[in-house]
Design a protein around this nucleic acid. Structure first.
Lengths: 129, 129
DNA sequence: TATGGCACTAACCATTGGTTAGTACGGCTG
DNA sequence: CAGCCGTACTAACCAATGGTTAGTGCCATA
């Protein structure tokens, strides 16, 4: 661990220097995850995404989309119109990423009864602060 | 959207009131994700996890493990010894969750060259602030 | 005596998340 | 006419969470 090769930088999430950590954080971010899921349905304009994802602010949405675009998961297309018209769609890479995310989302959603039961049981033994 | 049924609370990540949002945030949290991945290899003691996951502090690790335990993904077993001996292992649910996480991690790791290339290209067009 | 092992937690500062206001332009309504 | 709406962001500022550092108690060892 004293020395790190380039391969280790790429390949090992347990390694502090692994650059995929950051990329993982981006795609699993709270709002990015939901934006990607929405874009899996169809390309959206900014405002459409905003309305699709309840609870997200324009600021957080813009931030997440910017990151997703920079990492190459999302394609942003600006039409020079008034009012502004910006469209977001998944890139090829994004389209391959999304089934992984949706699989995880579906799994967790399906497990919510168990999660809730576990929380209730845990809170009985050890009430939260 | 004016009214929400219990089903909607459970089933729709796009909905503000969806409780699975929080559960998703927990399992995809930066340190929790790595803890779950390490536990997929074998049960670990606290210190073993700390050493396995480079860069995590005891505080952040403890916090993540506590959440994972509460949600029912991880089983925490305390042995009353001196020095303390606490062991963490995946629950049955955790064992089913982890392949989803590992699939995502593998996918993103494999895509890092493309992510980096996308970032470099994006930064040329639009240098980051 | 001091230090190390173990698994946390308290105190405090740094960073990111989130709220609110603002931008510019054309169209529509009262 | 003035005000508001639609659009897609960004600036300013406060709230919340992440992260750093110190501390806990007990036994064993140098």
């Amino acid at each position: 661990m004293a020395e790190q090769t380039v391969e280790e930088l790429v390949a090992d999430v347990f390694s502090r220097g692994c650059t995929s950590r950051e990329a993982l954080e981006h795609v699993t971010g709270k709002w990015s995850l939901l934006a990607l899921s929405a874009l899996a349905e169809s390309p959206h304009r900014f405002g459409e995404l905003r309305r699709r994802i309840e609870g997200v602010s324009e600021k957080m949405l813009a931030q997440g989309l910017q990151t997703l675009e920079r990492d190459g998961w999302v394609h942003r297309e600006v039409h020079s119109t008034i009012p502004p018209h910006v469209e977001y769609r998944l890139t090829g890479a994004g389209a391959e990423l999304v089934p992984h995310l949706l699989g995880l989302i579906d799994f967790v959603e399906g497990r919510m009864p168990a999660v809730r039961a576990a929380q209730a049981a845990a809170d009985q033994v050890r009430p939260p602060r």
